[in-house]
C-alpha cells in the first residue's frame, strides 16, 4: 500500500513537471508572474485524492526539480514561497468544505502570486512591486478557474487507486 502511494506521488510529480515544461513553451505575457499554473492541476488532484501533506511534497519537489532543470536559484525562491503559501491555503480551504475544487484552486492561484510578490519584494528590496499585485490577482483567478475545472474533472473521472 505504502509503495503504491509513493509511486502515485512520483507519477503526479512527473506529471506536474511536464505541465510546468509545457507551460514554459507557451508565449509569455507582458507581466512576470502571469501564468496559468498548469502544474497546479496535478497538485490539486493530489490534494483531493491523497491529502495535503502529499500535495505539498509533490508541489515542493516539482518546484525544486523544475528550477534545477530550467530555472535559477532566484526562480526557486520565488516559486517555492508561492507554492508553499498556495498549498497551505488550499489545504485549509479544502478542509472547510465550503468551496469546490474551482474555488480552492482560485484561492491557491492568488496565494501563489502573493507569495511570489512578497518574496520578490524581500529579495529586490522594493516595496513598489506590490503595484503589480492587482493584475496578478486577476491572472491568479483566471488560471485558478482553468486548473480547478480540469482538476475537478480528473478527480471525478479517474477511478480511485484501490488496493
Amino acid at each position: 500500500m505504502k509503495t503504491k502511494r509513493l509511486t502515485v506521488m512520483a507519477l503526479l510529480t512527473a506529471a506536474a513537471m511536464i505541465l510546468s515544461y509545457v507551460e514554459s513553451l507557451l508565449p509569455s505575457v507582458a507581466v512576470p508572474g502571469v501564468k496559468l499554473g498548469l502544474a497546479n492541476i496535478a497538485v490539486i488532484f493530489a490534494l483531493y485524492r491523497l491529502g495535503w501533506r502529499e500535495a505539498l511534497a509533490i508541489s515542493a519537489v516539482r518546484v525544486f526539480l523544475v528550477s534545477m532543470l530550467f530555472g535559477s536559484m532566484s526562480a526557486l525562491l520565488y516559486s517555492l514561497s508561492g507554492a508553499v503559501l498556495s498549498l497551505l491555503l488550499m489545504g485549509l480551504l479544502r478542509r472547510t468544505d465550503r468551496f469546490s475544487a474551482v474555488g480552492v484552486s482560485v484561492a491557491g492561484g492568488v496565494a501563489h502570486n502573493l507569495g511570489q510578490v512578497l518574496m520578490a519584494m524581500l529579495l529586490l528590496g522594493s516595496r513598489r512591486l506590490i503595484y503589480y499585485y492587482p493584475i496578478l490577482v486577476l491572472s491568479g483567478v483566471a488560471g485558478g478557474v482553468v486548473t480547478g475545472l480540469t482538476a475537478a474533472m480528473l478527480v471525478t473521472r479517474i477511478p480511485p487507486f484501490e488496493k
Binding site: 465550503r98 474551482v102 474555488g103 482560485v106 499585485y133 493584475i135 490577482v137 486577476l138 483567478v141
Partner: peptide, 21 residues
C-alpha cells in the same frame, strides 16, 4: 452551494483587484 461560494470568492477577488488598481 459550493458553486455559489466559488463565484462569491471569485467576485470578491476581482473586486479587490479593481479596488487596489
Amino acid at each position: 452551494r459550493k458553486k455559489r461560494a466559488d463565484l462569491l470568492l471569485i467576485g470578491a477577488l476581482v473586486l479587490l483587484a479593481g479596488a487596489l488598481f
